[in-house]
Design a protein around this nucleic acid. Structure first.
Lengths: 214, 214
DNA sequence: ATTTCCATCGAACGTTAGTTAGAAAACTAT
DNA sequence: ATAGTTTTCTAACTAACGTTCGATGGAAAT
């Protein structure tokens, strides 16, 4: 017997099984939510017995936690790396464009982890929402800084609330996990139109929106 | 004993309890998801015993189903009524504006039912996703027609995919249930800025977005 | 005051959940 | 081959789940 939590030091097979368990858990968590994801279900998908899971993880919550954290991390690091890879003289709009593209690509391509993380975060016990809370806040800050800097430089209208802008924009992107079908449309199409709408608005050139008369 | 499913014909108290059970279920469903919502939990919030629920409902799924349907219906009817109340000569942008406002208001004010419906729909057993499927499709069609008509009349740029536009816009609005805090900002503020961004884009007047150079 | 119906309670049933632990198997190294 | 280690299985436990049903209290009707 070995202490779960601490990964095995020499074994190979262990890493593999651990990965399969996580994959199965992410898949199940994405589709059925936290409460309907059972260890026996995970085990079946992973091709092992339920009891065997406890060789790799100490509890169900430890698995859920690992899936959630991996999901958030994937998105965060994808966006951060994409931004870091831009040339130093890249403009604000170019940077926002890159961030939107990276966020969306991570979400829709990186599979079950990100979707599970996004869809399930609000319904897991508060106790371990907090385990990935710091990472989530970092990510929020990244976007907040990105938008605030653009606004300070005049690339974004000064009458918009950047916090609200961020919430609406990320909501629009996050919601794609609910309807995106990889066979219907490439991810890049979605990113392109989202950016286009965000920057130019939906009205034709020359038309002017006068606001509500209600 | 009485047949559940068919509502009682004369009783008064029954209606009240039924409502309290639904309220408790909606509240619990919103916060904890489908699998973690238990009948004993619902009963406790409603102030009765778990077994008593079966006087009003035939099964847990019947409750969940009622909550979900009520949530979708509230949004659908709010938007439809708001549109019907507009003067016949109202322009396309005015109509879209009204729909956005009504959708958001129903979502954020109408409480636990709409939130539960939105957050939980993807994770309930497929068997009774289909019970509210028709209503959902009607609602999607309503928006699709609204946007397509605006585009046909030149109020929306012709190079945008209306289906994608709808998905991104509604995603942005739906996601508000994840972060909205009634103590922080009135709903109308959110609706106003969302519409403003949607129509005019985020760039200052006069600036022009040239697209990606990547 | 008695009857009748409505609404709830309280205790139980069978099932399934997460979890545990010792035996068994599979793999490594000698 | 053999011994030791790593990994999985099997079988069970307890708690909690949805659900059932006869008993019970309260309101309304006679």
């Amino acid at each position: 017997m070995k202490e779960p939590g601490t990964p095995p030091r020499r074994g190979r097979k262990s890493e593999l099984s651990r990965g399969q368990i996580l994959d199965a858990a992410a898949r199940m968590l994405r589709r059925q939510g936290y409460g309907n994801t059972t260890l026996r279900g995970i085990a079946e998908v992973a091709g092992i017995q339920a009891g065997s899971i406890y060789y790799h993880f100490a509890s169900k919550d430890e698995i859920m936690d690992a899936v959630l954290e991996r999901g958030v991390r994937a998105v965060y690091e994808a966006v951060r790396d994409q931004l870091d890879a831009l040339p130093g003289d890249a403009g604000h709009l170019r940077r926002i464009e890159a961030a939107v593209g990276a966020h969306l690509a991570a979400l829709l391509n990186h599979g079950d982890y990100t979707s599970a993380s996004i869809r399930t975060y609000g319904e897991v016990p508060q106790a371990f929402q907090q385990k990935s809370l710091a990472l989530r806040e970092n990510y929020t800050t990244l976007w907040q800084d990105l938008l605030a800097a653009a606004q300070a430089d005049g690339a974004i209208r000064s009458d918009l609330d950047p916090g609200l802008l961020r919430a609406l924009l990320l909501g629009s992107l996050n919601w794609t996990v609910e309807w995106y079908d990889p066979n219907q449309r490439p991810v890049q199409d979605i990113a392109d139109q989202a950016i286009d709408m965000l920057f130019r608005g939906v009205m034709p050139e020359g038309r002017k929106y006068e606001g509500s008369q209600s």
